[in-house]
Each structure stands twice: as C-alpha cells, then as structure tokens.
C-alpha cells in the first residue's frame, strides 16, 4: 500500500505551501501570547504555564496525528524527517539556548513574531541570532569533533526503550495531560507549594 503523505510538490506549490504553513505558525504563536517576552519568561518564574501548555498540547496533537496516520498507513514515516540525535552538542546547545532564552526573553521563532508585532527587543533578539549564527558558522570547524559527539543517528524514544511508537505516544500524551492537570491546579505546583508552606506576603 502506498502512502499519500508526505506529498510530493512542484516548486511553486512548495513555496506557496511553505508560506501558508509559516503564516499559521506565526499566527498561532502570536495568539498564544508568545510575542511577549514577559509572558514567555513568566514560565520560568512559575507565574504562567502558557509555554508548557501550548508547546505540549501542540506536540501531543501532532504526535497523535502522525501516530494515527502511520498506523492506518496514510503517512509513510520513513519519508518524514526525524532529527539525528547528537547527545552532547544537543544538551550543551539546549543549555545555551535556555540561557539565551531567559537572558533575551525569546527563542528564535518567537523573536520573529515579536519583531513582526513591533517589539524592538524582539528585533534586537533577531539581530543577535544572526550575529550568533554567523559567529558559530565561522568557528564551527574548530569544534567540529565535539559537534559530532554522542551521535546516535535518528534515534526515537520507541527505539531507545525497545517498545512500539503507539506505547510511547500514549505515554507522552498521558504525561502531558498529567502536566496540564498539575498546571491547572492553582496555577501550578509552585503556587500550591507557596500557598501551603510559604510566608504570607
């Protein structure tokens, strides 16, 4: 049985589709409030669980859609790009990106949306990204060896845990729903903790 997805597109259709998908990406990021550095960073002060809720609900929706599509044979998962895992550079990169996030208030995608809604700090963040990537590209040959360390190929969680994609998808969905539930309980566990044990202010 041949799968329908992913589609094979001509150049014109590809560009049009890319623009439209980008439009909705930007639209929903802005609607989620991700054009505001204050809203984004409030996540890290346990004051607003929007980042976690939006990100994980999006992951779960797309994941379940893909799982359903591959189970029914509509999607050929062999044709879908799965990022290669490079453990150490990805952990260090994650730490750097997280630091940049809390320092600059955005991550690369959200800073574009912030700049598009007139946020000057977002614009400076975008300029910073260009500078950072340019600098990184220039020094990359020097740290190339580190950059390939911990290479595991396109490793997925189901391969890591020797189980089926359905089981992992179900577990991720269950964990996400549990996290949502925790986030809904009086704006998160931290507030609950403070309310229960903290000094009254």
């Amino acid at each position: 049985m041949t799968s329908i997805f992913p589609l094979t597109l001509s150049n014109g259709a590809f560009i049009t589709a890319s623009l439209i998908l980008g439009f909705f990406f930007g639209f929903f990021l802005e609607r989620a409030g991700f054009s505001s550095a204050k809203k984004l960073t409030a996540q890290f002060y346990f004051r607003d669980w929007g980042v976690l809720k939006v990100m994980f609900s999006a992951i779960v929706v797309a994941m379940l859609g893909l799982a359903w599509g591959s189970l029914t044979g509509a999607i050929d998962m062999g044709q879908v790009y799965i990022p290669d895992a490079y453990l150490w550079p990805q952990i260090l990169g994650g730490l750097l990106l997280g630091s940049g996030f809390i320092l600059g208030g955005y991550c690369p995608g959200t800073s574009v949306v912030a700049a598009a809604t007139g946020k000057l700090d977002g614009l400076f963040f975008v300029l910073g990204i260009f500078a950072g990537i340019f600098g990184y590209g220039m020094i990359e040959p020097a740290i190339h060896q580190f950059n390939l360390s911990g290479s595991l190929g396109p490793l997925t969680l189901q391969q890591l845990f020797h189980t089926s994609a359905g089981v992992v998808a179900f577990c991720v969905a269950a964990v996400a729903v549990g996290a949502f539930w925790a986030a809904e309980q009086s704006e998160g566990p931290w507030q609950l903790f403070k309310k229960t044990y903290g000094r009254s202010e």
């Binding site: 550079p89 990106l97 320092l103 600059g104 990204i129 950072g132 990537i133 600098g135 990184y136």
Partner: peptide, 15 residues
C-alpha cells in the same frame, strides 16, 4: 536581547 539572541543562535546551531 541582542546578547540573548546571539547565545540562542549559537545554541540552536550546535543542537
């Protein structure tokens, strides 16, 4: 914001 952007840029490309 500029500094954060630069650090994010490096982190994103490394990862």
């Amino acid at each position: 914001a500029f500094a954060g952007g630069a650090i994010s840029g490096v982190g994103a490309r490394m990862a």
